[in-house]
Design a binder for these strands. Sequence first.
DNA 1: GTTAGCACTCACCGGTTGAGAGTGCTAACA
DNA 2: TGTTAGCACTCTCAACCGGTGAGTGCTAAC
Lengths: 353, 353
Amino acid sequence: MGMDERKFRILQAIIDDYILTAVPVGSRTISKKYDMGLSSATIRNEMSDLEELGYLDQPHVSAGRVPSAKAYRLYVDQMLASGRIRSDRPEAVVAHLNARTHQMEDVIDQAAQVLSSLTNYTAVVLPPTKPQPIIRTLQLVPVTQNSVLVVVVTDGGIVRDSVIPVSGSLDADALYSISRSLTEQLSGHTLAEATAMLPQIAARMRDNERLLAQLGGFFEETEEHAQRGHVGIGGASNMLSYPEYSDAEKARGFLSLIETRDKLASIIAHHGDVAFTVRIGPETGVPEISDCSIVTATYSTRSGRQGTIGVIGPTRMQYSRVISVLGAMGQQLSQLFGTQDAEKESPKGSDQT
Amino acid sequence: MGMDERKFRILQAIIDDYILTAVPVGSRTISKKYDMGLSSATIRNEMSDLEELGYLDQPHVSAGRVPSAKAYRLYVDQMLASGRIRSDRPEAVVAHLNARTHQMEDVIDQAAQVLSSLTNYTAVVLPPTKPQPIIRTLQLVPVTQNSVLVVVVTDGGIVRDSVIPVSGSLDADALYSISRSLTEQLSGHTLAEATAMLPQIAARMRDNERLLAQLGGFFEETEEHAQRGHVGIGGASNMLSYPEYSDAEKARGFLSLIETRDKLASIIAHHGDVAFTVRIGPETGVPEISDCSIVTATYSTRSGRQGTIGVIGPTRMQYSRVISVLGAMGQQLSQLFGTQDAEKESPKGSDQT
DNA sequence: GTTAGCACTCACCGGTTGAGAGTGCTAACA
DNA sequence: TGTTAGCACTCTCAACCGGTGAGTGCTAAC
């Protein structure tokens, strides 16, 4: 028993129906609504096979079937391979995006807004990646017996600090000399480079291994934070209209994930160079949204820096629509940032003071 | 029958209990948990009176009583008058707010974060008000027979545009001459001034009354938008944990209100000069949150500009706690922005490019 | 290989019932 | 006159129950 053409057509019908209704779909529904020229009994047999193959789940014995993550995966791969997706509907995107202000952050926010209202899911827009900040100074300040405050100043005036625990007791003088030594060695390097250099340094001044390890974590965190600017989010409330999230506790979990923008951004952030990414259910790697899918696309600025746009929705997402809307939006943003790069990206202090 | 001391004490007990439990409170509960030295029957009589006076509502005949908005009002007024509120707990606020980055926007976001996690409600933080943008140019462009695109350029490079409907048909030339004339008259003025000037101008060139009226609205909208910078929001998902918002549709309404930051900001924005504002239920004037209360406080920068912080929660809010936390946070922000005003408020283009 | 038929399973709905909480009223009491 | 005990009454809520319908798996016939 393998996956033949007919099985695939039936599976597709099931997915289509389930995406529409969110109700487990039975054999009769398929044989009637989607005319396959087959009786419900035959469909039943095929469905049973599909379940055995892992494409369908059955909530309970006398309910219809529900597509599994594996099924959606197949469905989406097939869809992408067939080239049926064109990024159509640029008109809608243009219409919404056009007539407004032109600050970078506003564009980002608006893009998220438009994406969410066109798809009815939750949209996230990340600004183009930024060049890596370079360390200027690093300073350790004693706070209590076993914690120190670490302050990093980078070029561009970004300051970040945090309290980290230390094991041995270190007095102010010791900390100061460590600070000097670290500043000397790390100054001029990016945070990523610094992180890579720490183990070496730790080897040399091995009294403070634990401290330096902590420092590595802090660098990574700081870098992530510095990397991303304003994250645009739209339509978080849309999620509440899907029966998947009628459970208050689940909804709460989802929303608090959305609220922690840093976490959200690192989830959405595009890995690799492909035009689209589709992550389905558990593929997202985030337990809170294990029954969601994430579709992302990229756009790029004239200077070659890339930004990410993404849509989060239930696994029974209208993938084709989402992908096509994302495509259109990606193009639009690329165009917008491509043509007027300089203007858009540096709003100066104009509206800040 | 008036409001005597005893009635007030009973009312207070009812409110305290209801704030804690969200369950209609009965006479027996009061006589047992809060020892008043009165039997439940007596309390019952008093409660009946309180209901007649409009301080209590009864969901149905055999349920306990629930405080009305009027009751909360009395409760809060009394609390404020008694001076029982000191803005204590600055330690907690300081602890959370201290050890972090120092960009204006980050501080705002973090303040919202801290407020929401200390109160378990939804927090909103508005940045200090900005100086009014001044009009440089105004341009009208025909779009269709009965709509024109209006573009305003202000100092600071802020551009805003929008399509507005017009009645009579106007050709490009006519629009251009109107644009020139308007630019001439309005250039150099703030948007607020311009709004005030429009009626006069309309009187002079009275063919286009409707157009100018529309323009007024547009100015106001633009001003509002320009006025506010980044709005910090924290703990929107907290609201879902209260039984008041277990209804999905209601929760959705609340969240989409929170999502439209402009609207939210204008709701929160502080009117007047008082230290605190407490708006209870219908007093908020926003139907979507007619069973919420909003507490706001202000902070100010060295340059005398004011920002607003606010907390939104169910009407059965822990007012005293919220007010004290807001007080502490207000002080903290004032201090933060007061001492290092210049630095904090103009992050330059540093992290933008 | 396909289909009709049939027995079986279960979620879901609507009505019923009993328990519990709370009230309002009345009458007795201090 | 204010307070309290007692009691009948109301109404929600949760549990229970049986019927209904959708859907399945299996078998036997085509």
